[in-house]
Design a protein around this nucleic acid. Structure first.
Length: 219
DNA sequence: AAGACCTCCAACCGCGGAACG
DNA sequence: ACGTTCCGCGGTTGGAGGTCT
């Protein structure tokens, strides 16, 4: 009996954004199912909330993470693991999604770098053949809930993989800091000020979105 | 020039917990 | 106490754009 409404999915259009902004302004950022309905957007409440939380909310910063923020993310992740929303709360203007994405891409890079290093200067335990794939290795590195573990290459038995501790190496915060410092040095050399990289285009478009509304006429 | 590959990030999904009736 | 609805979280996916070969 409930007619199946066809919900839109995928990327949001500018009109949808404007519409959602308007109704959030009108009713507040709660009751998302209700908002989705009254707005006439063919989106689920969930989708509307996500769009607001991750993109439209004017309190959000957009653009590259500053070194300070990067540090904070690393520090908090080492404390709390993959508690992204909790971490996000400590970093004003950043969303859990943003931090999560950041972590995944950057830690993947770090894992690869680490891999390179260990293959260049092989430790006594390293050997060319390992039952652990690179992908698994990366997983261990960035999905371990705060403690970055690297499966040592050359461990004998894949059946032992699940055993914690013994075959793992802790990737210490010191090592992470070193990597960050290196990164920063490189960025400085490249003469690329990070703070200035936040897109002015975004500022313009969001500002104009908000400004262009004549909110008073809807109150 | 063009196809393959990679990176980044917006958006979706499933689930669990809180709030409400 | 229980069922339903809503919200928020963490994991995953897909596609656009960039880079490499």
């Amino acid at each position: 009996m409930v007619q199946e409404e066809i919900m839109r999915r995928g990327p949001w259009t500018e009109e949808e954004d404007v519409q959602l902004l308007f109704y959030v302004k009108l009713f507040g950022d709660r009751r998302w199912d209700f908002l989705a309905k009254v707005s006439g957007l063919k989106r689920t409440g969930k989708s509307c909330r996500l769009r607001w939380v991750n993109y439209l909310n004017p309190d959000l910063k957009h653009g590259k993470m500053t070194p300070q923020e990067e540090r904070l993310v690393l520090e908090l992740h080492s404390k709390w693991g993959n508690r992204w929303s909790r971490i996000a709360r400590k970093i004003p203007g950043r969303t859990d999604n943003e931090i999560k994405n950041y972590w995944r891409t950057h830690m993947r890079k770090k894992a690869q770098e680490q891999r390179k290093k260990s293959s260049i200067s092989p430790s006594s335990s390293s050997s060319s053949s390992s039952s652990i794939t690179h992908e698994e290795n990366e997983r261990n590195f960035y999905d371990t809930g705060g403690i970055k573990l690297l499966q040592l290459e050359g461990e004998k038995k894949s059946s032992d993989q699940e055993q914690h501790g013994k075959s793992m190496k802790v990737y210490s915060m010191d090592e992470i800091w070193k990597d960050i410092e290196l990164l920063e040095e490189n960025e400085e050399k490249m003469n690329k000020p990070i703070m200035g990289s936040i897109s002015p285009l975004w500022d313009y478009s969001l500002d104009s979105l908000w400004k262009d509304f004549d909110w008073s006429s809807f109150r």
